[in-house]
Write a protein that binds this DNA or RNA. Structure first.
Length: 120
DNA sequence: AACTTGACGAGGG
DNA sequence: CCCCTCGCCAAGT
């Protein structure tokens, strides 16, 4: 499927998100990048807001390392709090260090040495 | 069928 | 470093 004809496109996003381990995060753009095809960060975000309960939506943040939930469906501090409970540290600006917490699924490697070092 | 909005991202000022 | 603009794709009105 190279197109969004099946409406199965949602599950592709969810499937990736479900694989994010606790204490790690992914960005909308990154997911869109993996899905490639006709996905964009916008689309991923749109799909994400309708995520089912079995999807750890809180582990998906924006490229700035901050929560973008705004005041729409969920308060930002809620998502941030959930992540903090998983061990993700945020600064005063509400950003976390993507170099530490960003997670890459198997088969997907960043060109840079942006791979997370993970404190342990 | 067209316009607007939205859990985004990158670039320019 | 903060603010604004443009690009992207899907859904609601």
């Amino acid at each position: 499927m190279n197109r969004v004809d099946d409406k199965n496109y949602r599950e592709r996003v969810y499937e990736i998100v479900r694989q994010i381990p606790s204490g790690r995060v992914m960005t909308y753009g990154q997911i869109a990048e993996i899905l490639g095809e006709g996905y964009t960060p916008r689309t991923v975000g749109y799909v994400m807001h309708g995520a089912a309960e079995n999807v750890p939506w809180q582990r998906v943040i924006n490229s700035q390392g901050a929560c973008s939930t705004g005041k729409m469906t969920m308060p930002v501090n809620l998502q941030q709090g959930m992540l903090e409970s998983e061990g993700v540290a945020f600064n005063e600006k509400g950003n976390c260090d993507l170099n530490v917490y960003l997670w890459f699924p198997e088969g997907f490697e960043p060109d840079d040495d942006t791979q997370p070092s993970l404190l342990g």
